[in-house]
């Protein structure tokens, strides 16, 4: 789906002599770089937050285990902690681990979606007639 603003932009680019291929390439590279950016943000956020989140989960489980009176709506963290506490006694060295495979799969999936998601607009782009730009809004 092309929103109206983009459709106008495509018409203008065609009217001033840009080819279908060129416009499609431009739009696809735009969406691919957005995908990369999104993946990067996701990875960084994941890497930075994984450890604190684990800590919160683990420490709340420890405290809740040791001082049940302080749970006070400890939420998911608290409850999970209880489960872990029941199953295991030492959980101090618990780490969040993300393997490279998972990152690669995620990236590949995102790229496939971005490319398929661009093929459809590409087809729509080729259908925009440059003479449309002479019609008023």
């Amino acid at each position: 789906m092309i929103v109206r603003e983009r459709r106008k932009e495509i018409g203008v680019l065609k009217a001033i002599g840009s080819s279908n291929i060129k416009i499609v390439t431009q739009f696809i590279s735009e969406s691919v770089s957005l995908t990369f950016l999104g993946t990067l943000v996701g990875l960084v956020a994941g890497a930075l937050l994984a450890s604190p989140i684990m800590n919160v989960l683990v420490s709340s489980s420890l405290t809740s285990g040791q001082q049940p009176e302080r749970i006070m709506g400890g939420g998911i963290g608290g409850r999970m902690g209880m489960v872990i506490m029941n199953g295991q006694s030492t959980i101090r060295n618990l780490n969040a681990v993300v393997s490279y495979n998972i990152i690669l799969y995620g990236l590949a999936a995102a790229l496939v979606i971005a490319i398929i998601g661009s093929a459809i607009p590409a087809w729509l782009i080729s259908k925009v007639r440059p003479s449309e730009v002479l019609r008023g809004e």
């Binding site: 106008k8 932009e9 203008v12 680019l13 009217a15 001033i16 730009v133 002479l134 008023g136 809004e137």
Partner: peptide, 9 residues
């Protein structure tokens, strides 16, 4: 081309 509604990107 010059258009009535400018049509800048």
């Amino acid at each position: 081309f010059v258009f009535q509604n400018y049509n800048l990107i």
